[in-house]
Design a protein around this nucleic acid. Structure first.
Length: 870
DNA sequence: GCGGATCAC
DNA sequence: TATGGTGATCCGC
């Protein structure tokens, strides 16, 4: 989103971190800084938000204090050694300095606000902001004089500037304008890197070389009013200017910084048809230098969109970015590609201006007396002792004016998430319902990009603005709403349970999926799916595939059906009608129950169909699970298309025989002697309305201590019976043996060690990869047969079972009333998980660290910590 | 892998 | 009355 990075800092940074600098400008419209801060403070003080800000500030101060203590312990000898080491590294960096690229950073001025002003002349000359009452995305320069900025809540902005007009954002429009700009940028660097709708980096090195020999008319653009030609190619008329305001942009031609006045060279301008005021045409020729190229780019952007951009030109991205800020708005700045120019520019540059140095890093460095890049360089030895390698390397790069000289291609996406803020929600059933809705949304988004991941993370923010995340990773990739919710729900449940009997008072909830397989991994998976299809177990796989697709749109998916009226709509109507008490959860629950049931019916039907087809002897390759017509060996895509068509057809069961569930009748559940107490998992009475939201068999697990507690064991049986009735399938307690389950039909029981080894397995592999035609899916942990035959769901279930087992184990250990002071909102990270791997580092980061050990690690084998300190 | 933090936009 | 959403990365466990 738009520029918080104008680095004028959040209004609240001023509030909390300001060190008393004032730049009041008397005589100007707007407010002076003191007045602004006073108003903000009045609006803020006493709020929960402010309370949390203070808390966070204290934490930062603590970090600083720790850092200062470490600093105090550093001996001058250590410092001298560090100096040598760092300087060696600095020398290497210096030698690798590359000034041969010309990098441009383009930044649209107050983009969203500018678009709104362009399209609504009434907003001209008025202070406006784009956003909502709760949060602003950007403001125009007029509003900024009142202290109205991006990332400020609208209601505070209104207090600063009562006449402020808040325009709701229109992202489709901004995207369209952004696209127009990108088309221009592509002419100069087809591989340009867009950072957001209003910001991009270009490497114009190649363009400059080519341009060197361009004839003048290739660099000539017509300025024109009164026409509507669309072409803005060189030598052609540029886009009309009159559409919005009827004149050439006053900014570019009147208010621009001197270096930008166009036409700047009278000899380059041809006035044509000067006598016709309607069709005033002139042309301008741009030179071949980088500066001229960027002027041309900004000129074309303005001609095409009537919006202005600022730009920076420098030998690397770090500098280019800082430059684009220098003459904003509607200006540009260049750092010439020689070392001296770079160092002159860097000299007094406040580090906060550099991308990646945020307010916390700024504050920490300030505590060390570092504000400018020069100071950053001077303190390099100290920094190498106080910060992580990644961090001090980054600092050194900055202080030498170094940065990326090539634009990295966009890597693969690493995560996808949805989150929402709302007015307080404390009822568990509403929280589950909301969670379900978020999962559904996320699943749709994932589907759009064809992504599947292995980790689900939920994010919770309570009404005091305290944020918590809880994650769980399973062994096989997941992507459907059901699969995600199966995991998210367990995570949520753990948090809710942890605070009982107090409710979680939430103001935000989010769900994220990550751990996507690499490109390579996906290809492999794809191959194996096809292989699997061809190998003969195709019906199950195809049916699952079809079911997955069915769940994603064409069929009554409970998540989507219940979504017809979204949770937020409901909350809204609840608020609106709260006096009449019209809103009842039952409405929701009935809805989703109905939907859930219909979905179960469909699933069951398909399951039955499957069995029917598998029971027939001549089970062919690639038979459609819906119509059961043989599809031959066709591509997966074609196959899926066919299944989709079938599912879209008049009736699913039309072509298929119905048959009743043919599972073996229920036997006794979980004979006690076979069950290890710690890992006996079975269904339990859920939170009140949970059963109404239940959609898959996965969400049934909860650890119950059974040994020596027969009443609970009975409860298990009772519930199982209920379960059986509902599903018309029994739940035989089939013993399960992981090692042999692929060979035999799962005999033997899971010992404690088995569970542990199961957990310890480097299980990137699902527990089950394929299923025999008549193999029941029995969870090796809870020993319950799963209602699903969806392999992924089954594997998710097993993971959830295992995770819950471990969590419960830990919790049991911790339930020591003496040692466990009960804190209402915080359940300090007790999500005990099995952990091993370490993370890889990719981009240079900026995080600071304060533990004393191994501050200097060798980036170069010659400079090891050992040799350094010996 | 997890969770808290920081940062950018 | 009232302070956003998405994605990435890093650090210490």
């Amino acid at each position: 989103m738009e520029s918080t990075k104008e680095k004028n800092d959040n209004y609240k940074d001023d509030l909390l971190l300001r060190m008393g600098l004032n730049d009041n400008k008397a005589g100007m419209e707007g407010l002076d800084k003191d007045k602004i801060n006073k108003i903000i403070m009045e609006a803020t003080k006493g709020s929960r938000f402010y309370g949390n800000e203070l808390k966070k500030e204290k934490q930062v101060n603590q970090r600083i204090e720790n850092m200062m203590q470490q600093k105090a312990q550093i001996t001058s000898q250590q410092l001298r050694k560090a100096q040598l080491q760092v300087d060696k590294f600095a020398m290497e960096l210096e030698q690798s300095r590359d000034l041969n690229n010309t990098i441009v950073h383009i930044d649209m001025d107050a983009f969203y606000a500018a678009v709104e002003m362009r399209d609504n002349p009434e907003l001209k000359d008025k202070p406006i902001a784009v956003g909502t009452r709760s949060m602003l995305s950007t403001s125009n320069y007029h509003a900024r004089r009142f202290g109205v900025r991006a990332a400020m809540p609208g209601f505070i902005a209104k207090r600063l500037c009562p006449q402020l007009i808040i325009v709701p954002p229109n992202f489709d429009k901004y995207r369209a304008v952004s696209q127009e700009v990108k088309e221009i940028l592509a002419d100069y660097d087809p591989n340009f890197m867009a950072m957001s709708l209003d910001e991009a980096y270009l490497n114009i090195t190649k363009h400059l070389q080519e341009r060197e020999n361009w004839p003048e008319d290739k660099r000539k653009y017509f300025i024109k009013t009164g026409s509507s030609l669309e072409n803005d190619k060189p030598g052609k008329e540029v886009n009309k200017l009159s559409e919005h305001e009827g004149s050439i942009s006053p900014l570019l031609f009147e208010d621009s910084p001197p270096d930008l006045q166009l036409p700047r060279n009278p000899f380059q301008v041809n006035f044509e048809e000067q006598n016709n005021p309607q069709i005033l045409q002139s042309s301008v020729v741009f030179g071949t230098s980088a500066e001229e190229v960027v002027k041309e780019i900004r000129f074309r952007i303005e001609q095409k969109t009537t919006l202005t951009a600022s730009a920076g030109i420098a030998p690397n991205t770090m500098l280019a970015k800082v430059c684009s800020d220098k003459n904003k708005p509607n200006g540009q700045y260049q750092i010439l590609p020689n070392r001296q120019a770079v160092m002159d520019f860097i000299k007094d540059l406040p580090i906060r201006k550099v991308s990646g140095i945020g307010k916390v890093t700024e504050k920490m460095l300030k505590a060390l007396g570092i504000i400018t890049c020069t100071e950053l360089y001077q303190q390099r030895a100290l920094l190498s002792l106080l910060f992580s390698e990644t961090s001090w390397h980054h600092f050194l790069h900055i202080s030498l004016g170094l940065g990326s000289t090539h634009l990295a291609r966009d890597g693969e996406r690493k995560s996808m998430s949805v989150e929402r803020t709302f007015s307080e929600i404390s009822k568990a059933e509403e929280q589950y319902s909301l969670c379900q809705e978020l999962c559904s949304e996320l699943a749709q988004d994932l589907q759009k990009e064809g992504l599947k991941g292995r980790t689900v993370t939920i994010k919770l923010k309570n009404v005091n603005f305290e944020v918590k995340t809880r994650a769980s990773t399973v062994s096989s990739v997941i992507s459907t709403a059901e699969e995600i919710f199966a995991i998210a729900k367990e995570l949520l449940r753990t948090e809710i349970d942890a605070d009982l009997p107090h409710p979680l008072r939430l103001r935000l909830m989010g769900v994220r999926v990550s751990s996507f397989p690499s490109e390579e991994g996906r290809k492999q998976q794809q191959r194996s799916i096809i292989g699997f299809l061809r190998a003969g177990s195709q019906s199950l796989s195809a049916a699952r595939c079809a079911l997955e697709r069915a769940g994603k749109g064409q069929c009554p998916n409970p998540l989507e059906v219940s979504q017809k009226k979204s949770f937020f709509d409901k909350k809204r109507s609840e608020r609106r009608w709260n006096h009449q008490d019209t809103f009842k959860c039952e409405t929701v629950d009935k809805q989703s129950l109905q939907a859930s049931q219909s979905f179960q019916v469909l699933k069951k039907k398909m399951s039955e169909n499957l069995e029917t087809s598998e029971n027939s002897d001549n089970c062919q390759m690639s038979a459609c699970p819906v119509c059961f017509r043989e599809q031959g060996i066709i591509s997966l895509e074609a196959f899926n298309k066919h299944v989709d068509a079938c599912l879209d057809g008049p009736s699913i069961s039309e072509n298929s025989k119905m048959s009743s569930c043919s599972r073996a009748p229920s036997t006794e559940v979980n004979k006690k002697e076979n069950v290890q107490p710690s890992f006996l998992l079975c269904e339990k009475q859920d939170y009140e309305t949970h059963q109404n939201m239940e959609i898959t068999s996965v969400d049934c697990v909860e650890l119950v201590e059974t040994v020596g507690n027969p009443s609970k064991a009975e409860g298990v049986d009772a519930l199982s019976d209920k379960h059986s009735k509902e599903e018309c399938c029994s739940l035989p307690s089939r013993p399960f043996n992981v090692e042999r389950c692929h060979q035999d039909s799962c005999t033997g029981s899971l010992e404690n060690e088995d569970v542990e080894s199961l957990r310890r397995q480097e299980a990137l592999q699902p527990y089950l990869r394929e299923v025999e035609a008549d193999q029941a899916l029995v969870c090796p942990v809870c020993n319950l047969e799963q209602k699903t035959w969806d392999l992924t769901l089954f594997n998710v279930h097993v993971d959830v079972c295992l995770n819950r087992g471990v969590i419960q184990e830990l919790r049991r250990d911790q339930v020591n009333p003496v040692n466990q002071p009960k804190e209402s909102t915080r359940s300090a990270g007790t999500s005990g998980r099995v952990q091993k791997t370490l993370t890889k580092t990719k981009r240079p980061g900026l995080m600071t660290k304060h533990s004393a050990s191994k501050k200097i690690k060798p980036s170069n084998p010659r400079h090891t910590l050992d040799t350094f300190f010996k």
